[in-house]
Computed example of a mutant assay.
Amino acid sequence: MTTFLTPRQRADRTSAAVEAAVEAGRGLGLTITGPTVLHDVFSVVVHLAPSPVVARIPTVLSRPDDLAALARRQQDELDVTRWLADRNIPVIAPSPLVPREPVQHDGYSMTFWPFVEEARDREPDYVENAESVADLHAALRAYPGHRLEFLSAADPRFIADSLVLLDRHPDLIGAAELDRARREWQVLEPLVRSRSAFETRFPGIDLQPIHGDSPPANIFNAVDGDLYADFELVALGPVEWDLAALGPEHEAAYNRGARRNGMRPLDKEVLAFVNAVGMLRVIAALTLVPQLPELMEYLGPAVDRWQTTPFAGGMNS
């Protein structure tokens, strides 16, 4: 049976992450007397008050021992957000009060950002956000993304490893569902791991730097205006990846923004592909449930919906 993190263990993990961030922040010269946790799901996000600095410490990880890989991804995020800010794109950029690099302390790898006040009285408009993503893509096209990996946001190693590990967790997914996921991955994996295979399957689909993690849901409602945020999965890929699983209304909104920017509309076949890969990431995320038990409330219904969708998004036809 699967062993889940207890509430006490969860609280201890949060406390340890906060303590690591405080010690690291003080080591960088920040004055910290009243750290306040702002967010605690996949990462602990803590305001290092009274300094106007927020530390983000990933705590729910597929490979918690591989801090080097995490730091490389964090450096990509720091670099691209600084680049966007330098071009006056509305984005949460790295804090100017500390060096622009990940900091490792007590087994955690963290990044530092400015404290931005949230407009809590304003509900996000995700359809409007989807249209705005086209503006972000237009800006990112000029980013020198030679360091970005093709579809690293999909994390194919995580998917492949998880489809093996889930044998040990029959209480998280049934045998028939796991078998389907593995067969789908056989179809989709070559297109995720190989840029040339993707380009052969989808000729004419341009690749560019993309946000990587559903940017319509990661636009921060700041008091002074919306800001693009959370580029933790920034990658090279098709723009469709950033609209995966959002549905026709959001796709139509993005296409309006694309036309405004002189860019191509979303491609239906590529959308089917990224939606299928995204669902396998949902299956893979079941392996994170022991670290974050409430995650099952969201993943369970998604797995149920996945079983009603075409096999591998129709990529096997």
Rank of each mutant, 00 (worst) to 15 (best):
L266V: 05
H250Q: 14
V127A: 11
D224T: 09
E23S: 14
S95F: 07
L136K: 09
G257P: 11
V192S: 04
L188R: 08
L151G: 01
I219V: 14
Q291F: 09
E240H: 00
A16I: 08
A245G: 11
L207Q: 02
P248R: 10
A130F: 04
S132K: 15
P114N: 04
S109A: 15
A20K: 08
I92A: 03
M296E: 11
P209D: 00
R141H: 08
F220W: 06
E297F: 10
G225R: 02
Y126H: 15
N129A: 13
I32A: 07
V164Q: 15
V239R: 10
L78I: 11
R182G: 01
L299T: 03
V98Q: 04
P170A: 03
E184S: 05
P58I: 02
T308R: 15
L271Q: 06
G107H: 06
R87C: 04
T308S: 14
A253I: 10
R73M: 12
F311H: 11
L178K: 05
A160Q: 13
Y126W: 12
A71W: 03
R73S: 15
R183C: 00
L38C: 05
D121C: 04
R26W: 07
R193T: 12
R100A: 14
E199M: 10
L67E: 06
A68S: 14
M263D: 10
A258L: 07
Q9N: 11
R281W: 12
G247C: 08
L246I: 07
G34Q: 15
D125C: 06
R120S: 13
R259G: 14
V22S: 11
P248T: 04
E101A: 15
A312Q: 00
R180H: 02
L271Y: 00
W83E: 00
H105F: 12
L288K: 12
D206H: 10
E77P: 00
F231P: 01
R260H: 13
D267P: 01
L166T: 00
F158C: 12
P52A: 11
V282N: 13
A68R: 13
R180A: 01
I57Q: 09
V303G: 02
R72P: 01
A134D: 09
D12L: 14
W83Y: 00
A312C: 03
L61Y: 03
R26A: 08
A302I: 09
P215S: 08
A139W: 03
V103A: 10
V187Q: 00
G262Y: 01
A181Y: 02
A130V: 07
R122H: 08
G262I: 01
A258E: 03
A142M: 00
P94H: 03
S152E: 08
A222S: 06
I283L: 11
F231R: 05
T81M: 05
T59M: 09
K268C: 12
D179E: 13
V282D: 12
Y228R: 06
M263E: 07
A222K: 02
E118R: 15
Q74G: 05
A21P: 10
L207F: 01
T3S: 13
I32M: 08
